[in-house]
Design a binder for these strands. Structure first.
Lengths: 336, 336
DNA sequence: CTGAAAGCGCTAACAT
DNA sequence: ATGTTAGCGCTTTCAG
């Protein structure tokens, strides 16, 4: 910038004025400065500008579990879009199941003076927050709740979504519905299981022995399913897309009575499967943009009490969830 | 930091030494400073540190077309992982098909003084580079070539991958193979078409009227397919996953002679389709990490001539590509 | 309308 | 082993 000033024959301050489009510079001077800028290929150093101004860096950090999964990818896209609308840049990092790595990311983002943090790694506990989050950096938790509800959070309507699935199946005549969930360490696995139990209880449906959480190994799934079919189960709800895919693989290869299936979380090719899979679709991008909104509101009003936003799910009925064999249920229209 | 120094009763410089773990500070002093740091909740301002040091910001910027697609998501994950291994942070942004937005992202990243840029928006032309990229910011193009080969680039082996598909089908006895590609504006669409033509020529297979590029509307696809089947086509190669999905939708609903199908680009649920889809899998994460490697090599040795890295594809044979009806081709083993 | 001086938070280069 | 001074690139403050 000194060079530009020298070339333009003005003071550094005047160059600064031009660069920042401040009023009160003679058009002719502006012209001269801009020529010098172009000639020297000058670009303002945003970091120095932020430092002197003491303003925010206009950036936010996003800590994820794994950038590559479809849910996280859609979520990230939602975050990035909304952040960009506000003129903010996005820093991203994956924890890959490692709490220490998640902690380092939080610290690195904080050291760069991001304006806020969005934290979504679902395998990592709250220690990421308590141990690494400086008290003056606002954060929003995504897809997992804050243990003491002292932090803003955005969640899917897990309970409601599972209830949609259960009610859908019950209305079609299923009286014995099972729940297959992913690893119990995922908060969403447990939350959706609880939603399943509640929805079944509400309908007076049995759940004894019909709920299975854990690692999605073929063996465990085979055992669970064979137990369920022996017990007269006619429909299964899967608790996330990993569970859905695992069950689909199993059903693909086994023989036996047909099982209706509703999967939590949308699959990209759900409508090309045979049969097309009925799903409870989450609004991943909506979760992301809601989190950004929450963050900006907190930046504007730091004294706000912690809030919790629940994003609705949507039941997408396809053909994997027909009435049970021999049911005299509703007319035969299962397409969307 | 001044506050820490005051509290610890030392000079600011000593605090700096402690923060940066520089040698030559008495353990006892270190202790005292660290207590003050903890007490005041001090965190070093990385931006100020970089400014004074004149060092890099240890960050790279990634400009994508759309963060949410599976290919870009996997690519981003590859980039982020490799960047993190080097202690670098990643800034991401989506262009969403808008060249101007891509340009603004490039400028914003450059103004933040990222050490380098990774540029992948496949709908945007080279104007993003020429108009917005400062000459002193190294960049690597991903999944599209540099027009004048003046920039480092990482590409999938599009030609080889398509050849794998064609040879695979030809070896199973197909003599009339068609190519369905996405919009011609995508460089990859054209590149893969050219690869298709070359592979067919090499095998002596006809291609006249068997190649169709354009928007993936149901109408266009229906017209192309019906023309092809009338002309005796027994197999179709699709040029990207959007084309694959579009063709799958079409085949799903139409009746008519069976068509073998090989799709370029892996689909998440390819093996759960009916029939499971044979694909040419791209190594998206590998492309991402290769690009980061290229960038770091250029940062280390700026005088390197521009390089082009081609990442291999892998043919994943499933059941959508059997020999044509009535062929006396190879034994009937189509599983992976 | 323009400029000189001071300083954001930090560290290099010299003292001591 | 520790402190002092100066300055990274920019913008604020105040004076012309």
């Amino acid at each position: 910038m000194v060079d530009v000033a020298r070339t333009a024959g003005t003071s550094q301050k005047t160059v600064s004025r031009v660069v920042n489009a401040e009023p009160g510079v003679r058009p002719e001077t502006v012209e001269r400065v801009q020529r010098a800028i172009a000639e020297l290929g000058f670009r303002r150093h945003d970091g120095a500008s932020h430092l002197r101004r003491g303003t925010s860096t206009a950036s936010i950090g996003l800590v994820l579990e794994d950038l590559a999964g479809p849910f996280y990818a859609a979520l990230t896209a939602g975050v990035e879009r909304r952040a960009r609308e506000h003129g903010y840049l996005l820093l991203t990092g994956s924890a890959d199941g490692d709490a220490e790595r998640a902690g380092r990311l939080v610290q690195a983002f904080a050291a760069r003076r991001v304006d806020g943090l969005l934290i979504a790694p679902n395998l990592v506990g709250d220690e990421v927050l308590t141990a690494n989050l400086p008290p003056d950096v606002p954060a929003v938790l995504l897809d997992r709740p804050s243990a003491d509800h002292g932090t803003d959070e955005v969640l899917s309507d897990n309970t409601g979504g599972i209830a949609q699935a259960v009610h859908h199946l019950a209305e079609r005549g299923h009286r014995s519905i099972a729940y297959l969930g992913d690893d119990e360490r995922f908060w969403t696995s447990r939350q959706r299981r609880d939603g399943f139990l509640a929805a079944c209880a509400e309908r007076g449906l049995p759940t004894d022995g019909l709920v299975s959480l854990g690692a999605l190994t073929p063996e465990r799934i085979a055992a669970a399913v064979s137990g369920w079919t022996a017990a007269g189960v006619t429909a299964v709800v899967t608790g996330n897309n990993r569970a859905s895919v695992a069950l689909l693989h199993h059903l693909h290869e086994r023989t036996g009575p047909r099982l209706a299936h509703v999967g939590f979380d949308e699959l990209d090719l759900a409508d090309l499967l045979d049969p097309p899979l009925t799903t409870v679709a989450q609004d991943a991008a909506g979760i992301g943009s809601a989190a950004v909104d929450l963050l900006f509101e907190r930046l504007a009003t730091p004294t706000l009490p912690p809030r919790s936003v629940v994003v609705a799910t949507r039941l997408v009925v396809r053909r994997s969830s027909p009435p049970p064999d021999g049911a005299s249920a509703p007319p035969d229209r299962f397409d969307r």
